[in-house]
Structures are given as C-alpha cells and as structure tokens.
Design a protein around this nucleic acid. Structure first.
Lengths: 255, 255
DNA sequence: TAGATTGTTAATCGATTAACAATC
DNA sequence: TAGATTGTTAATCGATTAACAATC
C-alpha cells in the first residue's frame, strides 16, 4: 500500500461487485481466527455459519476472486486467507494518518484491529499543544501544524479525520493537498473533495438511529393495532457508506 | 424511546425500505443544519446536493414517510425535520448504556452527536476499578459488576459493546439477560444473540480495508496494463451492517 | 397563466438465493 | 464408486433513476 506502482501477479480483482468487496474483510477476519485454531480447511457452509452470510453468497463471493476451493472438500484456510489479503491489498502495509487525537482519535490509534490487518499508524495529529508529544499506543501525537511536513515524510495512503465537525473540511483539504486520495471521515459533516479522492464516512450516531428505528418498529409490531406480536427480524441492506465523488468538488453520500 | 406502549399518531412507517431507513438520518442531520441557518424550505434538488443522494431518490425516500412536500415549492424544513425525527423514533429520548470505558467507550460517551439526536447516555461501565467514578462527558464510570442493577434502574433502550473482543460475548449475554433488545457492537467479534435481539456491528478496521481496496483498484487503473488512466469513482452499495438474528442463538452478519 | 417541483411510474440495474451439474 | 462440496446458472427480489403527469 505504499505508493509504488503495483507489480503484483494475476490478481483477479476486475469487477468484483461492491457488495462482495464489503464482505471480504468479514471472511478475512474469520479465516484469521480459524488459522489461529489450526483448522486446515473450511466449507462454504461452515464459513456461512461463522459469518452469518448465506452459503450460496459465500461461494459466489469467493468465486469472484478465482477458483480457490476444491469440490467435495472445501477451501484451504491459509490459502484462501492469503488470497483475500492480496485482493484486499493488505499484503503491503497501508500507512494511516490520523488527524484529531481526542478520545476517538486515540481509540483509533490504539485499535488493535489495525495492525493485525496490515495498517500502520504513521501519524497522529492534534491542535491542542498540550497533547503534542504524548504517546498513544504505537504513535506519538504531533502538532497539526506539521501536517504537510509529516505527510511528505511518511507518505500516508489513508487519512482519517477524527476532528470535530468544525475543523473537518479544512483538515480534509489539507490532506487532499498533501496528496492523500483515501479519506475516512468520522466528523459529522459531509466533506467536499475533488473527484479523484474517495471519502468513506462513519457516523456513530447514525448507527444508533437505525437501531432506534428498528426498536420502535418492533415495539409497534408487538403492541399496536395490527397486533401481530411477532418480533420481526428486520434486515438492513443497501446502506451506501461512501461519499460519492462524481463531480469536481461536489459533496458526497455520508452514511 | 422509553419502553412504554407507543401512543403515537398516524406515523406512516409501515414498510419503509431498509435502504431508505439508512438514509433518513442523513437527511435529518442536513435538515437540522438548515434549521440552524433559518432556511424555511428546501427542494429535493437542494437536499440532493447537500447529501450527495440522487434527487429522485430523495423524493422517493421522503414519499415513503407521507406527502410532506408541496409541488412547485419544496419541503418545509422544520416540518420535514420533525416528521423524520418522529419516524426515526427520536422524539422520545433513547437511553443508551455503554459497556467499556476505554478510549472508544469514552469517545462515544462524550460524542456530541448523541445528545443532539435524542440519545442519552444513562450508563458507562468498565471492569477497571481505577476508572470507576471518573466523569466522562455527561456520564460517570460505574463498575461492570453493577450492570444488572444499573440496567434495572435506568431501563436502557440500547446497549453499546465497546469492550475488547474477549469480553464482548459475556457482556452481550448480560445485556440481553437485562432485557436489552438493541445492541451496537464495536468489538471485533460476531455476537450470538437470541432471535428477538438486534445487533448492529461497527468495525472500524473494515472501513479502512474497503478504502484500501479501492485505493489499490485506482492504482491498478492508473498504472496497469489496461492503461485506461481514468481514476474511476467506485460506488459501494449493499453493505449489510446488521448481525442477523434469524434463528435462536445463531451468529449474525458483521459489517 | 407560466414556472417550478413534487410524487409516482416504469425501466434498469445489481444483489440474493435456490438449485444443480461438475468434479474432487 | 459414493458422498460431499464447489462453481455457476437462472429466477427472484429490491434498489436506483430517468421521465413525466399532477399540481402548487
């Protein structure tokens, strides 16, 4: 994930459906756990049970990567795990640059799930000069004034915006100016970026709202006039988590 | 959102498509900002520009709530905002119970986006006895040993699991036993819950992985043999963020 | 009335899933 | 060979979007 030209082999990543891409990390995590417990092979049915994904969907997803299974046997855990890593671009470490070292920024910097999945925090910045110099997990907090300088040195692949809503757009602009083309946005704002930059948005309040909505639906189902009384399991699919960048400097789709 | 029987009026929430539900909070946030700037009406086109959602989609989404627009004019900001709040179940405060007061738990407890959207943190628990008693934003940290007791008193609507992966399932079981039926899971594990409980999963590493994948795709498009050189904007839809609860005690779909 | 914008229709697109032939 | 499981087909379902009649 360092910005070199990719010399990789026959990675069959042409036209993997978006919904499949979104599930690959799930398979990847479960395969990692299976590796730890020294399970050698796994069937689509087993993967389905472990991930909650329909087994036909598992097979279809994996078939987009290539024919890595063996009929009558299943998938070799280590081999499949490696192939998914490769297709996800995790074989080279991705350098992550976190702006904002409040509770959230610090939580992200010390999040164990990053290192184990090939992400390396190469910068953790904050405006608060009192915070500068403090060690947070593997990172030391730097001043946000040094953003450009640090970015030039560390060449981050991904920028994470963990600031309040107010400063977010400015930080985003500076990240983009520094050459970063992938941004993960935790601030509750829609970020405006040029077309070549991809922004994904994580909105923690939104997740709660969706839960609250479904909870309300269940209560209605239980107690209201229709009186069905069956607590339906409502499936939420089709959530678009991506800030679109279809035109130059247009706002995108937050989650 | 307190567990009383809903006496609400003609809330037209039957069969709102899942994809629409996932976007309502986005409209809600933007409408709130428009309210602050005293904008009286807004057209679907304007809402589309502000959220990055296609304008036809905006109209279709809003039409699921009822006919709240005026042809030739647009939507009354305050009225639409209220209707969405009502459909999302935000008119009554939802009580949120956070287990795990590490960086992430503290970030959530002090997250401004919660209070402004009708969520109230009624509990923040940690195993670390040194943390107990500390004030974090509006909440004071309690001992996780008091989980059942506190839940009985505060009657939380939503439980948030912000513990490491190891403790997550136990915490989840205790939340379920305490009567909580909506759980937001930040731990990198699939939680197993009874069918009547809904779990939504937020996986911070997953978002980074998806960004990394797209970044890799862009580099391929730029530099590889096909030589197209056009940085495609790849759209990611269809991400299922919900742990399913289709059968009793079956694992679900993590995000 | 003329202009603007909603609400809805219908076509299109993509994702899901059961079913089964291929094959280890 | 018999049993198991993949990879793929095809049917179904839901979401997206352009287009436009309804109507303010």
């Amino acid at each position: 994930m360092t910005p070199q030209s990719p010399s990789s082999g026959p990675v069959a990543t042409r036209d993997i459906p978006a919904a499949t891409v979104a599930r690959l990390p799930i398979y990847h995590r479960v395969l990692g756990q299976l590796l730890d417990t020294e399970v050698a092979t796994v069937s689509s049915k087993e993967l389905a049970d472990l991930t909650g994904v329909n087994s036909a969907k598992v097979r279809k997803d994996l078939s987009h990567l290539g024919s890595y299974g063996v009929r009558g046997v299943g998938y070799d855990v280590a081999y499949l795990n490696y192939q998914i890593s490769r297709d996800l671009g995790l074989t080279n470490d991705a350098a992550v640059f976190i702006v904002g070292a409040g509770n959230l920024g610090r939580a992200l910097a010390s999040y164990a799930g990053f290192a184990s999945r090939g992400f390396q925090v190469v910068g953790l910045l904050d405006v608060d000069s009192e915070q500068v110099g403090r060690q947070v997990g593997p990172a030391r907090i730097s001043s946000v004034a040094e953003l450009e300088e640090l970015a030039a040195v560390t060449q981050p692949d991904i920028g994470v915006v963990a600031t309040p809503a107010e400063g977010a757009q400015e930080v985003c602009d500076r990240l983009v100016a520094a050459g970063i083309t992938s941004i993960l946005n935790f601030a509750p704002t829609v970020l405006t970026v040029p077309a070549h930059v991809e922004v994904r948005k994580v909105d923690l309040g939104l997740e709660l709202q969706i839960l609250a909505f479904h909870a309300q639906q269940r209560r209605r189902g239980d107690a209201s006039t229709n009186g069905a009384g069956v607590p339906r399991a409502i499936d939420v699919t089709g959530l678009d988590l991506r800030d679109s960048a279809t035109g130059d400097s247009r706002p995108g789709v937050p989650a």
